[in-house]
Simulated scan of single mutants.
Amino acid sequence: MTRLKHLDDYVDTLYQNADPRLQETIDLKEETRTHLEQSIRDLMLTGRSETEATRIALDRFGGAEQADSIIKTMQIQQNRFATRLFHIGLGVLLSSMIVFIASLWIGGKYDLTFADAVYLNVAEAVPIDAETGQAILQTSGLIHGVSMTATDTPGEAVSLSKRWAGTLGLISDERSYLENDVFTVIDVVDPRKIGSILLLIGLTVYYVLSTVWGVITLHTRQRLNLLSLALLLTLNVIGFWMANRVTSKEE
């Protein structure tokens, strides 16, 4: 029991610079303790006393230098993992920005398509009917609803929509046109809204992953405190740089 307590104290001292809350530290301490205990038993089987066996086992392990090397290796792995997360977040952000810019261009092109869909079909439609509305719906796959009302005879109206129209609330928009005394409203899928939602998702993914990267990196550099965390959460990468500068000056 005394030997085991001695080993526990020794292992705790070896890894005092590692975060005791991390599962990696807990596993590492347990592996080291098990390794040392087995080495002591093997040496005692050769006829050495417990004290001598313990001394030899500790010498063979390498002591604090070996522990520091293991800790540094573990920290390097953590930093690599954090950097990988940051690169993933940055890649997602850049991809979503490209998609957003493309959606603006595509949305502008489809604005002309939607306008033509109304003007070309309503210009010759007298009176308005379901056939005209159906022709507008078929002009583009992004048009999912159309309603037409004659301005001179409000009772004359047509309203049509596709079956899946009700599922597009977040990415749909209305376009209004007045042509040939017919007020036409079409419900369309707006590429710009799709791009905006994807951009928001990209920003969120980037913020979360870059924050995780910042927390891990500051922690391994022993610079994680309330101020650095606040700077990181509010200013992200700029806050990370500022937190490094502030803690460096304090040291």
Rank of each mutant, 00 (worst) to 15 (best):
E250I: 08
W105D: 02
K72L: 09
I40L: 03
E31V: 10
Y177I: 14
K249W: 10
D27E: 09
S140N: 14
A130M: 04
S95L: 15
Q78P: 06
D190Q: 11
A157K: 13
V215K: 04
T46E: 14
L235C: 05
L170W: 08
I238K: 09
T34A: 14
T32K: 00
L227K: 06
L104S: 09
I26Q: 08
V92C: 10
R55W: 09
K29S: 01
G133S: 00
A150L: 14
A135P: 03
S176C: 09
V99T: 05
L58M: 11
H219S: 15
L93H: 01
V92T: 07
N79Y: 09
G214Y: 01
K5H: 08
D187T: 15
G239K: 07
L120D: 13
D27S: 08
W164D: 14
W105P: 00
T204L: 15
F61L: 07
V188W: 02
E65P: 03
F61I: 01
I98Q: 02
V158A: 04
I101F: 11
T167E: 11
L22Q: 12
V208M: 12
Q222L: 05
M1V: 15
G108V: 02
G169K: 06
I143C: 06
N79M: 14
E251S: 05
S172A: 08
E37L: 11
L226Q: 09
Y206D: 09
I143Y: 06
L232H: 06
T113S: 04
S176T: 15
G145T: 07
A82L: 05
G141A: 11
Q38M: 14
S49T: 09
S96L: 07
I106V: 11
E65W: 03
S147C: 08
D129A: 02
W213Y: 15
G91A: 12
T149V: 15
T151D: 07
M74A: 09
L200N: 11
W105K: 07
Y10I: 02
R55C: 05
T204N: 11
K29Q: 07
I201H: 09
Q38N: 15
I101S: 03
P191I: 00
G239Y: 04
S210Q: 08
M74Y: 04
R21G: 12
T83S: 12
I76Q: 14
Q66T: 06
P191A: 03
E174I: 08
Y110M: 04
V246E: 13
V126Y: 11
K72A: 08
E24V: 12
L7P: 00
T113G: 01
D12V: 02
R55E: 13
A135Q: 08
V212H: 10
L178A: 11
T34V: 14
Y15A: 02
I76M: 11
A82K: 00
L226F: 12
I71T: 05
D187S: 13
A18Y: 03
M44Q: 09
S140G: 06
I216Y: 00
E50T: 00
S95F: 15
Y207R: 15
V189Q: 04
L232Y: 04
E250Q: 10
E131N: 10
